[in-house]
Design a protein around this nucleic acid. Structure first.
Lengths: 164, 164
DNA sequence: ATTAATGCAAACGGTTTGCACTACT
DNA sequence: AGTAGTGCAAACCGTTTGCATTAAT
């Protein structure tokens, strides 16, 4: 029933970034080192991930994979995400809407700021969050993991609209 | 089919706290003011909520209601939670496991600290979180809502165990 | 030839919805 | 009497699982 289409060559919009600087270029080797396999489905997901920075939900990734390969099956995506998390290339938590949220490149750790009015999410880089990390360490001996720092509230833009 | 059982008198373990100091004592009036009704099912949920401090998931509330009244129906609980949130007695967000999390007494606003090792959750009171609120306001004009502050990491206890 | 990975379909779990019925007011 | 609220069952949605099949090694 004609699965296993290789959509790769059709969709490398930005050939230069398909295998970007980072982690993704060696996934294939990482997998092989562990006796795991490099499949077209995984290739598709890696391509999508390599174009993604920050955070995505599982459902979003499936959607994007489907654009590359319409035959994408959810369970395959989720299973591959599990594997990638085992390899340490990914980390997941849960977003404000309760869905799985995957963080790409956990090396570059940062927190998140969510505006309840406009729904926008911003990253809080490590230096800006330093004050939080310090406060929790000193007060409680708690080691903050920035990738699991989530701050809700209202952004300057939305607050401004109301005020006027 | 014998619904509408009043389990109230059977389960007032701590009669003194059934109608505690706060908000819950006047829910009935709040409802009536808006033309809404006081039903046994709502009474059950209010009783459960009055014994609850901090945060619970919807599923947990249903479970606890069922202990008071085994005939509790999920949709009724969720619908009442909606109403209570409209009345401002409750606020909900999403917890680390992705389920709805209801915050009781939103007046006493606080953040949460989650340890990834032992799973414990601590409250971060307003004064302790002040440094975060200030940092975000000054840096970005962002108004932090403490009830939506979630910090993940590892607590002193768990970090200690590893070190030794 | 092995066996990891896939496709598929069914299950899961918390939450939501539609609708006829019930009981607060 | 009028209508808010309920019970029930089915739908929902993202995610997970079991299993026979397929394909990477």
């Amino acid at each position: 029933v004609q699965r296993w289409r290789y959509a790769w060559s059709v969709t490398n919009e930005s050939a230069s970034s398909v295998t970007p600087a980072g982690e993704w270029s060696r996934v294939r080797e990482h997998l092989h080192e562990r006796g795991l396999r490099w499949t077209p489905q995984r290739r598709t997901l890696i391509e999508v991930l390599s174009r993604t920075d920050g955070h995505v939900t599982g459902a979003e990734l499936i959607e994007r994979c489907r654009q590359v390969d319409p035959t994408t099956i959810p369970s395959t995506v989720y299973r591959t995400l599990d594997v990638l998390e085992d390899l340490g290339l990914l980390r997941h938590s849960h977003g404000a809407d309760g869905r799985e949220e995957f963080h790409v490149q956990p090396g570059i750790s940062h927190g998140h700021l969510h505006c309840r009015s406009c729904g926008t999410t911003w990253e809080v880089p490590a230096d800006e969050a330093g004050v939080i990390v310090d406060a929790m360490r000193q007060g409680r001996g708690f080691a903050v993991d920035l990738s699991h720092l989530s701050i809700g509230g209202e952004c300057a833009g939305c607050a401004g609209k109301k005020a006027t």
